[in-house]
Every structure is written in structure tokens, then in C-alpha cells.
Simulated scan of single mutants.
Amino acid sequence: MDPDDLATVSPLIMRTIRRFGNWYLDLTPPKDVVAIRLNLAPGTLFPTAPV
């Protein structure tokens, strides 16, 4: 079968329709980055189980 013929009968159109839309990624870091450090007591996030 010729690939051009197969492309005309394919149920999924790939050339004109973008299934998930247009994605634009801005990978530059933000200018105002606030560094926050949390001072948590030991065992706050992962408490130990009683023995």
C-alpha cells in the first residue's frame, strides 16, 4: 500500500489539528525568587511510630 494513499484514509489527522494545543515553554528563571527556609521541629513531617 502506498503511504500517501494510507494517509488519506487515516482516521487521525496529524497535519492541521493539534490534539493537545500549542505548548510554549518559558524556561528562563523568574527574576524575583524568594528563598524560604522552614525551620521545623524534628519529626514534624515524618512522625515516628510508637514502639
Rank of each mutant, 00 (worst) to 15 (best):
M1G: 03
M1I: 03
M1N: 00
D2Y: 09
P3I: 02
P3A: 02
P3C: 01
P3E: 07
P3H: 02
D5N: 15
D5T: 04
D5C: 11
D5E: 04
D5M: 06
A7H: 12
T8A: 12
T8G: 05
T8Q: 06
T8Y: 00
V9D: 01
S10P: 13
S10K: 02
S10H: 06
S10I: 02
P11D: 11
P11Y: 00
L12H: 13
I13G: 03
I13R: 00
I13T: 03
M14E: 15
R15C: 14
R15W: 10
R15F: 12
R15P: 07
R15A: 03
T16W: 01
T16V: 02
I17T: 02
I17S: 00
R18C: 10
R18P: 10
R18V: 07
R18S: 05
R19D: 03
F20C: 02
N22S: 08
N22V: 06
W23Q: 01
W23E: 00
W23R: 00
Y24A: 12
Y24K: 08
L25C: 07
L25G: 02
L25A: 08
L25R: 08
L25F: 15
D26L: 01
D26M: 01
L27Y: 11
T28V: 13
T28W: 13
T28C: 06
T28F: 12
T28Q: 13
P29Y: 14
P29G: 04
P29H: 12
P30D: 15
P30S: 05
P30E: 07
K31Q: 05
K31C: 12
D32C: 03
D32W: 07
D32K: 04
V33W: 08
V33R: 05
V34E: 14
V34N: 09
A35R: 04
I36A: 03
R37V: 08
R37E: 09
L38Q: 09
L38T: 14
L38I: 11
L38M: 07
N39K: 07
N39R: 04
L40K: 03
L40W: 05
A41V: 11
A41D: 10
A41L: 13
A41G: 07
P42H: 10
P42G: 13
T44H: 06
L45V: 15
L45P: 09
L45Y: 14
F46E: 10
P47W: 04
P47D: 05
T48W: 10
T48H: 11
T48V: 07
T48K: 13
A49N: 12
P50A: 04
V51W: 09
V51R: 15
V51I: 12
V51K: 15
V51P: 13
V51T: 11
